[in-house]
Amino acid sequence: MATRIRPSSKRCAVIGGSGFLGRHLVERLVDKGYTVNVFDIRQAYELPGTTFHQGDLCDKEALLVALKEVSVVFHCASPAPGSDDRALFERKLILTSSASVVFEGNDIKNGKEDLPYAKKPIDYYTETKIQQEKLVLEACSKEKGLLTVAIRPHGIFGPRDPQLVPILVDTARRGKMKFIIGDGSNLVDFTYVENVVHGHILAAEHLKADSPLCSQAYHITNDEPVPFWDFMSQILVGLGYSAPRYHLPYSLVYGIALLLWAIALLLRPLVHFKPTFSPMRVALAGTHHYYSCARAKKDIGYRPLVSLKEGVARTVESYSHLRKGPELKAE
């Protein structure tokens, strides 16, 4: 997120405002009295207090129109994580960062923001997040009036999420959510989308030339690390599906994923196939990765607005249309 200082102004722009996080952010900003310019490649909704600007992020002229006379810019545009199109990520400027910038597939427990960037990013998504965070934080210039800060959420979930819940339900319906990778004790941060929005707005409101936020990164999570498979089970059971119950050794699954990845790489010139379980997905499901919010608490007064329990309940309720029906009765 980057902002040009104009303390009295409440006009802002949200780039990627039609997306999952972006739309939640727009709605909250309007609730707080902001006038919002929304810039995205598609218009997904209409909302009083917003002006929609449609265009490609790489079209400088179209983007400048959306940024005219705004004092705060939130950059939330991003291709979906997991895409294997490197060029798609390299042509995007992504200024909502991610805690994954320090994750290499090994355990991280209560990780601080000063952890080094991953030398071997787990995917293109993470690789480009690292690149954009470095560029944005290095661009901070109090003399030029451009102040920058990076927000690092982790495991965003909530209503209208196009990724986690729909994919989880689809996998369960195909009978492929029966196994737990590892012993199931690995703790992970999941963050309700309203808390991520809250962290962004707090950062914008505290970002001043004399504040400690300038050129810093901040972890924003629910601050409630939970066993990865417990969280997945809560979503599944809440929608009427069976929780995974059979354990597979982490090292075995990771080794198979590596082998399949290598085979896919070798065969790519002849045939393209994408293994269901990549080494990255196995690592995310089987290792500890949770992060400290101490810096955000100290510098911007961050506290989650919605507990993990309440966030899961709201999410399950919002996906009632994906609930298991009588014809799909569990075994």
Rank of each mutant, 00 (worst) to 15 (best):
L57N: 13
T50E: 00
P116Q: 07
R86D: 00
V72I: 15
Y124K: 09
K112E: 08
P48V: 12
E138N: 14
K60Y: 00
P79H: 12
F52Q: 09
A99E: 02
V72T: 14
K120Q: 13
T128G: 00
G55E: 06
I122H: 08
D114C: 11
A66S: 14
L64S: 02
P116G: 09
D107R: 07
V73D: 08
Q132A: 15
T50K: 06
H53S: 02
Y117D: 06
L64F: 00
T96N: 15
V65C: 11
E69G: 07
G82K: 05
G105M: 06
Y125A: 09
F74K: 06
P116W: 10
L93I: 03
V70Y: 12
F103A: 03
E138G: 09
D107S: 10
V102A: 15
N110K: 12
R91G: 14
G49D: 04
A62L: 13
K112N: 08
A80V: 00
E104S: 10
H75W: 06
K120H: 08
E138T: 01
T96A: 15
E104M: 07
E104I: 01
V102M: 14
F74S: 06
H75Q: 13
S100K: 02
S97Q: 03
Y117Q: 02
K60E: 11
E69L: 03
I108E: 01
G55C: 12
S98T: 11
C58M: 08
S100H: 03
H53T: 00
